[in-house]
Amino acid sequence: METTLAQHIVTDLPQVTALGIIIKAIIILAVISAIAGFGTYIERKVLAFMQRRLGPMHVGPFGLLQIAADGIKLFTKEDIIPQNANKFIFMIAPIITAATAFIALSSVPVFPDFTIPEFIPLLGGVFVPSIASDLNIGILFVLGMMAAGLYGPLLAGMSQANKWGIIGAARTAVQFLSYEVVTGLSILAPIMLVGSLSFVDFNNYQQEGVLSWMIWQQPVAFVLFLIAGFAETNRTPFDLLEHEAEVVSGYATEYSGMRWGMFFIGEYANMITISIIASIVFLGGYDSASMFGWLTIMLKIAFFFFLMLWVRAAWPHVRPDQLMWLCWKVLMPLALVNILITAIVMMV
């Protein structure tokens, strides 16, 4: 039944051309980097309000132009490469983080599909798809690509000839080994229920109102995935890689200017990706039938983004050994039990 649904959708849409995909890629790059920059502003504001401060106020109305000021600063700052560092690796490490974050976004549905109007020269009539590359194993690709993104911190830490950097790199490996199993296992139970790895199928599975959302069927998987997602994006309870109070700035200690900024564009893009996955897999995704379907998913994504900032304001962070303990001794058995129960229920 699902295959007929998928075919139906495929035949319904206009032809996807290479030009359309290139335009889509440019849109994703531009918009997500802009949102990532705006995300830093939102993060500073939300954290400030939660700590009874005002946050950035002086550049522009309510400090809105702070992003521009930060951007100018990052772009014009001197790009320092330490003397004993492995220069080539040091230079490409931030690019790995940023690039993998955006590659992961290539198989995630971002923004609705549309056709460029005919009156625009050159590009008129080109159909721009919702997903840049509609793999039928989208979820696995995104998770795999985000895992590859950890090479950025790892190589950055090891190439910079700095003890803090080495500790940051070691923590990257520790963190990766901890959460990766939980991410995979927690999302396996919803995959079993839907019977597909494609985001479109996930979305179509939950189209019968709020009660059909996956979160009601798989609450444990939802919580586990959120926890693993926080670890995956280095958000606060698990920001071991660059925790200022412990390892000066971890893997980013020696970085400055745009290379440092690229790590953060990557981190914010990853936050958006995790938010999108969580909204599509567990919170019903977008409603493709109605006009405001895209608005609902934007709200869901915004909620998850806000949750990450909220948690950062509220909770302290854990030690690396506590993270390992949590992931391997608590979350992984929970995920396995969840899968078992799901399988038994599906069989009966």
């Binding site: 793999l135 696995l140 690709f141 895992a147 590859a148 090479y151 990766e180």
Partner: peptide
């Protein structure tokens, strides 16, 4: 392809 990514790269 994805298995290659996850297993070997990860």
């Amino acid at each position: 392809g994805v298995v290659q990514l996850i297993v070997y790269v990860g």
